[in-house]
Simulated scan of single mutants.
Amino acid sequence: METIAMIVMDMLNPYDHDDAETLGKNVEKIVGPLARLIEQAHRQDDVELIYVNDNHGDFAATRDDIEETARKGRRPDLVEPIVPPRNCAFLPKVRHSAFYGTSLEYLLHRLNLRRVVLTGQVTEQCVLYSALDAYIRHFAIRVAPDCVAHIHPDLGEAALRMMERNMGAEILPARRILEA
């Protein structure tokens, strides 16, 4: 059975930035399905759960610092259900793509993983750019639209269409996303 990498992006967010209110309203819709998917992924032997999260400009921040900042932010209700389990990989990032400036590609190759499931925020930014970076690195891509949050609905929908059409991404509901 093929092992899948499930990547949770940028969900540890203090929601203190431009567009945070709009984004927060959209994250409200995905936090339940995403929390259930994280729990499912964490229980499955054939899924490697990996968190990749923006360091919010703090280059000295550890995983615990990023988590604490998010929990103390404006929307702890969106953070608490998706806090990473202690025994999963956690990679801080500095830009939009989960691959840019991180060891994600090395980790995926080291674990011999060829398929990535992208979840988190923001669909038309970090999820889209990570999908492109996965595609050019020859990873198979899956995205669960009920586990990614957008800021702008039209751009989020366009990003999903682009990932499907231009990058061969499978767009599947959370209930099917971890199937082999």
Rank of each mutant, 00 (worst) to 15 (best):
residue 1 M to T: 14
residue 10 D to G: 12
residue 12 L to A: 07
residue 15 Y to V: 06
residue 16 D to C: 06
residue 17 H to W: 08
residue 18 D to K: 12
residue 19 D to Q: 12
residue 19 D to I: 05
residue 22 T to H: 08
residue 22 T to P: 00
residue 23 L to I: 12
residue 26 N to P: 00
residue 30 I to E: 08
residue 33 P to T: 12
residue 33 P to S: 13
residue 39 E to F: 11
residue 40 Q to E: 15
residue 43 R to G: 05
residue 45 D to S: 15
residue 46 D to M: 04
residue 49 L to W: 05
residue 51 Y to W: 10
residue 52 V to Y: 02
residue 55 N to E: 06
residue 58 D to P: 00
residue 59 F to E: 11
residue 63 R to Q: 13
residue 69 T to I: 11
residue 69 T to Y: 09
residue 71 R to F: 00
residue 72 K to R: 13
residue 72 K to Q: 13
residue 72 K to Y: 01
residue 73 G to K: 15
residue 73 G to V: 14
residue 76 P to I: 08
residue 78 L to F: 14
residue 79 V to I: 15
residue 80 E to H: 12
residue 84 P to R: 09
residue 86 R to Y: 13
residue 89 A to I: 08
residue 89 A to G: 01
residue 89 A to L: 05
residue 91 L to Y: 02
residue 92 P to M: 08
residue 92 P to W: 06
residue 94 V to Q: 14
residue 96 H to L: 06
residue 96 H to A: 11
residue 97 S to R: 09
residue 97 S to T: 08
residue 97 S to P: 04
residue 97 S to L: 07
residue 97 S to D: 08
residue 98 A to M: 08
residue 98 A to W: 07
residue 104 L to R: 03
residue 107 L to Q: 00
residue 112 N to G: 02
residue 113 L to S: 03
residue 116 V to R: 03
residue 119 T to P: 12
residue 119 T to W: 11
residue 122 V to G: 04
residue 122 V to T: 15
residue 123 T to H: 11
residue 124 E to T: 09
residue 125 Q to R: 05
residue 125 Q to W: 02
residue 126 C to A: 15
residue 128 L to Q: 02
residue 129 Y to V: 02
residue 129 Y to M: 10
residue 130 S to R: 04
residue 131 A to D: 03
residue 134 A to K: 04
residue 135 Y to P: 05
residue 139 F to I: 03
residue 139 F to V: 02
residue 145 P to T: 10
residue 148 V to I: 13
residue 149 A to G: 14
residue 152 H to V: 14
residue 152 H to I: 13
residue 155 L to S: 07
residue 157 E to L: 14
residue 159 A to V: 03
residue 160 L to Q: 02
residue 160 L to T: 03
residue 161 R to Y: 00
residue 163 M to N: 02
residue 166 N to I: 00
residue 167 M to G: 03
residue 168 G to R: 11
residue 168 G to T: 12
residue 169 A to W: 09
residue 172 L to N: 13
residue 173 P to E: 15
residue 173 P to L: 14
residue 176 R to K: 11
